[in-house]
Design a protein around this nucleic acid. Structure first.
Length: 204
DNA sequence: AAACGGATGGGCT
DNA sequence: GCCCATCCGTTTG
């Protein structure tokens, strides 16, 4: 049996606080290799969900749905919302705490035609063109464009079909901080982060 | 340009 | 039965 060891970087990245991870995920690349093809997006907008935060799914304890939030960090938490969409999160906290980072938008990098095809097939008017900056500028949209589905819930994101790739260079962008979008409770907390000036961000 | 409401179904009290 | 970490087409000013 082969010994699997995580890199120094990998081991330490996931030890950081959820807010720090939410900020440091900005600029990293999300890659999905599916049977349809390969799509790549650069993360440009995130939100942190904390264990003592009323908006967090894990705030009221473990249930079948939020189970993977209580597992080890670096895994995918994908859940079904509004009867039609899914949201993709990265589990962050140390084992048992129940925290995650919602990925809210990506800048399309590779496989734009496939993204276009997938997005259009989920719409009524299909003979239109979706502008590049609107392909992945929302949590539901990016899940469709990247071809993710619930079967990826719980997978580890550092190897396998859905993976994160960190840039070696120090980021040159500015991070903007705001309140989170689409929630009722905890609406005043400054836990949304995005790359300032990036056209793929969902909302200013 | 902004505001509004319908679609649509699982999760939880 | 109500709530939702959304999106889109339509209506309104």
């Amino acid at each position: 049996m082969k010994k699997s060891s995580k890199s120094f970087f990998e081991r330490n990245f996931w030890k950081q606080s959820t807010v720090t991870v939410a900020q440091k995920l900005l600029g990293t690349f999300l890659v999905h290799n599916s049977s349809e093809g390969r799509t790549v997006g650069r993360i440009v907008e995130t939100e942190a969900y904390l264990s003592d935060d009323p908006a967090c799914h894990a705030a009221r304890g473990e249930t079948p749905r939020n189970r993977v939030m209580f597992g080890p960090p670096g895994h995918a938490y994908i859940y079904f919302i509004y009867g039609m969409y899914h949201c993709f999160n990265v589990v962050t906290a140390p084992l048992g705490k129940g925290e995650a980072v919602l990925i809210r938008s990506l800048e399309p990098v590779e496989g734009l035609e496939l993204m276009q095809k997938r997005r259009l097939s989920h719409r009524q008017r299909q003979n239109q063109h979706i502008p590049e900056k609107e392909l992945c500028n929302g949590p539901g949209k990016l899940v469709i464009a990247m071809g993710m589905h619930r079967s990826l819930n719980g997978i580890y994101l550092m190897k396998g079909p859905l993976s994160l790739y960190f840039s070696k260079e120090t980021p040159s962008f500015k991070i903007k901080t705001t309140t989170r979008i689409g929630i009722r409770e905890g609406a005043d907390l400054p836990l949304r982060f995005y790359i300032q000036g990036n056209p793929s961000v969902s909302k200013k």
